[in-house]
Design a binder for these strands. Structure first.
Lengths: 146, 146
DNA sequence: TTTGATTAGTTGCACAAACAACTATATGTC
DNA sequence: GACATATAGTTGTTTGTGCAACTAATCAAA
């Protein structure tokens, strides 16, 4: 029999990550209703470039927890939207460095505010110490599996 | 400025649901290495049919937190794999009832054991009371947004 | 009983993810 | 320098998701 801490229904809920799916959908809706024409996956790439511009695609793979083909296509679509630009590295011609355009720079403040609001809405009525425990557990789960 | 409980890097981690992505990937790998030729999305549909066979597609939408086109296509692929069968309802001809085949019935025990093992691995070294807090927080997040 | 609204399911399209196979460049060893 | 190996990125294929538009069946109200 099961020796973990999940009943049947809870097991499904935990594996499928209902909570994070709900957060992602809400964030996407808020982007859409704000007239922001980007997906949350595209936003997640921009997010890391706002922290540090000019990352390579491989660095974006590590940062976003995605594989190389996924990043290739996300960068493709971001280039189509004129939000980033591939610049071949001078030192290593295998490498593309990804730079934000001015359009993308304009998006940072607004989208971060929306993300912040969405998280606040999601965590409404949850005491800070319980949020802290939750974050720590999820970090351990990630470390256990990565 | 931000008035929630997340630093920048944590915000990304929470929104993208790194922990549940890690669990899903690990489970998929275990299915693959066990020679089980199904995706975790297909498994999530079977999961609810094992609990109650003969659900409608709409009921599967609610249970799996997916929209109707997603379920249509998952059922399409499960039918191709000979794991489920669509049976039109006699009382309401709009409705398809989805029934497990014998092949799918055989999969229940093995896949549930794998899912159980995967969760135990993910939660290794996490005390039960902290798991409980985490579950409750994620449930509130879901309820806040649904 | 006809009309209008609702519900269940399907289809088309764009975007994304996982995997495998591929090209091109760089590196390390003989 | 030549060769094997590793690394960065691309492309093709299958599967899944979200949205909008659609069909078919049911229900409700006049």
């Amino acid at each position: 029999m099961s020796n973990n801490h999940f009943k049947k229904g809870e097991l499904y809920s935990f594996i499928t990550g209902k909570a994070s799916i709900a957060i992602a959908r809400r964030l996407q809706k808020r982007f859409n209703t704000s007239g922001l024409n980007i997906t949350i996956e595209q936003w997640s790439v921009l997010y890391h470039l706002w922290k540090q511009d000019g990352l390579s695609q491989q660095q974006l793979c590590n940062a976003t927890f995605r594989d190389k083909p996924s990043i290739t296509r996300l960068v493709d679509n971001l280039e189509k939207l004129n939000l980033v630009k591939r610049v071949p590295s001078e030192h290593d011609r295998r490498i593309n460095l990804i730079f934000l355009t001015k359009n993308a720079q304009k998006l940072e403040e607004e989208t971060m505010q929306i993300a912040d609001d969405t998280l606040n809405e999601a965590l409404r009525s949850v005491p800070p110490d319980r949020i802290e425990v939750c974050k720590e557990v999820l970090q351990i789960v990630y470390d256990n599996l990565k």
